[in-house]
């Protein structure tokens, strides 16, 4: 991918995916990797930070004799995700204006 993914954009993506459903680290990583060029170790510090900021909580469930840690979004995380969504629409509009608008004229 040509464009770099910053920490904030990554937060926005993680929170937005978690808005849909609770999920675990591996699955979340694979979901994001389907669209973004991130490494497999990218999400660990992100999830840790979001958890510390109380944007998400974890819950452990037994799965095939081992543990599976699910991440769920909190009310605060929902709020953050809404903010990011607004900011993203604004940002995307501006960049579209520059890149696509510039090319059209």
């Amino acid at each position: 991918m040509v464009f770099q993914i910053g920490a904030t954009l990554l937060d926005a993506c993680v929170l937005s995916v978690l808005r849909g459903e609770d999920t675990y680290g591996y699955s979340l990583t694979q979901t994001l990797r389907g669209s973004l060029d991130i490494s497999e170790s990218t999400l660990y510090p992100v999830l840790r930070r979001l958890q510390k900021e109380a944007c998400l909580t974890v819950r452990d469930e037994a799965y095939q004799g081992r543990n599976r840690r699910y991440y769920s979004i909190t009310e605060k995380g929902m709020e953050k995700a809404r903010e990011y969504r607004g900011a993203w629409e604004d940002f995307r509009g501006r960049v579209d204006g520059l890149i696509l608008g510039g090319a059209a004229s």
Binding site: Y24, E40, Y44, R48, N67, R68, R69
Partner: peptide, 13 residues
């Protein structure tokens, strides 16, 4: 915490 995360990660793979 880190070990658990990556243990689970590889197990999920």
């Amino acid at each position: 915490d880190a070990i658990e995360y990556y243990f689970e990660y590889l197990a999920e793979a």
